[in-house]
Simulated assay, not measured.
Amino acid sequence: MHVDLTRDSVAMGDDVDAPHRQSLHLTDDASLGDAVSAVLARPYLAQIGGGKATWLVVVDGTVSAVVAQQWAGPRWLADARVRAPGAIHFRYLAQRDPGEVYVEYSRCQGQP
């Protein structure tokens, strides 16, 4: 299975490579959770000085999870066991408090 990845830029110097396209190759039975775990295991999301960065995992226009540089793993708003999608976008929210972001999106069930 092939998953197209894109992510927001984190600074002007990072804009040169925007939208930071990469491909992820997974087994045909891979889940969304497997795909996000594979992304987090590689140096794809920019690491921010100070150790605090918040990202939204967006699939088909819906926020599926919140990922934070300071968290060990994602906090899911969708079922991580669903089949991995063909594309995932990571939306950068700078240093917004990831706990507050999670509460905000869980109230609106992942809709931006």
Score class of each variant (00 low, 15 high):
Leu24His: 07
Trp55Cys: 05
Lys52His: 15
Arg83Ala: 14
Met1Trp: 09
Ser106Ile: 09
Asp8Lys: 03
His2Cys: 00
Arg83Gly: 10
Gln111Phe: 10
Val16Asp: 12
Gly73Thr: 13
Tyr102His: 15
Gly50Asp: 10
Arg42Thr: 11
Val3Glu: 02
Gly86Thr: 11
Gln47His: 14
Gln111Lys: 14
His25Phe: 11
Ala35Gln: 02
Gly13Cys: 10
Gly61Phe: 01
Val36Gly: 02
Val67Met: 04
Ala80Glu: 15
Leu24Cys: 06
Gly50Gln: 08
Tyr44Gly: 03
Val39Asp: 00
Pro74Met: 04
Val3Pro: 01
Pro98Leu: 01
Gly99Tyr: 10
Pro98Arg: 03
Val58Lys: 03
Asp4Arg: 12
Arg21Asp: 09
Val67Thr: 00
Ala94Ile: 08
Cys108Thr: 15
Ala65Phe: 04
Pro85Tyr: 00
Ser23Val: 09
Leu93His: 06
Met1His: 11
Thr62Glu: 06
His2Ser: 10
Asp28Phe: 08
Val16Pro: 00
Ala38Tyr: 04
Ile48Asp: 02
Pro43Arg: 14
Ala35Met: 06
Ala72Trp: 08
Ala18Lys: 12
Trp76Pro: 07
His2Met: 10
Arg91Ile: 00
Gln111His: 14
His25Ala: 13
Ile88Asn: 05
Val82Cys: 08
Arg75Asp: 10
Arg75Ser: 11
Tyr92Trp: 12
Leu77Ser: 04
Asp15Thr: 15
Ala84Asn: 01
Asp60Asn: 10
Asp28Trp: 11
Arg81Ser: 15
Ser9Trp: 12
Val101Gln: 10
Ala94Met: 12
Arg107Val: 10
Val16Tyr: 09
Pro43Asn: 14
Asp14Arg: 05
His89Arg: 13
Ala78Glu: 08
Gln111Gly: 01
Leu5Arg: 01
Ser23Lys: 12
Gly73Cys: 08
Leu24Lys: 09
Met12Tyr: 13
Trp55Arg: 06
Lys52Glu: 15
Arg75Pro: 04
Val82Thr: 13
Ala87Thr: 02
Leu77Lys: 05
Leu56Thr: 04
Val10Gln: 05
Gln111Val: 14
Ser31Asn: 05
Val58Cys: 05
Arg96Val: 08
Leu24Ile: 09
Gly61Glu: 06
Trp71Thr: 10
Glu100Cys: 00
Ala46Gly: 07
Glu104Gly: 08
Gly86Cys: 08
Val36Cys: 01
Val10Ser: 07
Val16Trp: 11
Val3Asp: 01
Glu104Pro: 01
Pro74Lys: 02
Thr54Val: 07
Val63Ala: 09
Gly86Lys: 01
His89Lys: 08
Leu45Tyr: 02
Val16Gly: 01
Gln70Thr: 13
Met1Ala: 14
Arg81Leu: 08
Met12Trp: 15
His25Pro: 00
Ser23Cys: 02
Leu93Pro: 00
Glu100Thr: 14
Asp17Ser: 12
Arg7Met: 05
Asp29Tyr: 06
Arg107Gln: 12
Val66Lys: 03
Gln109Phe: 14
Gln69Leu: 11
Asp97Ala: 09
Val103Tyr: 07
Leu26Lys: 05
Arg91Met: 03
Lys52Leu: 15
Asp79Glu: 14
Ala80Ser: 15
Gly49Ile: 09
Leu40Ser: 06
Asp34Arg: 03
Ala46Val: 13
Ile88Cys: 00
Trp76His: 04
Val3Ile: 10
Lys52Asn: 12
Pro19Leu: 02
Val67Phe: 04
Arg107Ala: 11
Met12Glu: 15
Gln69Val: 07
Thr27Glu: 11
Ala30Asn: 11
Lys52Gly: 02
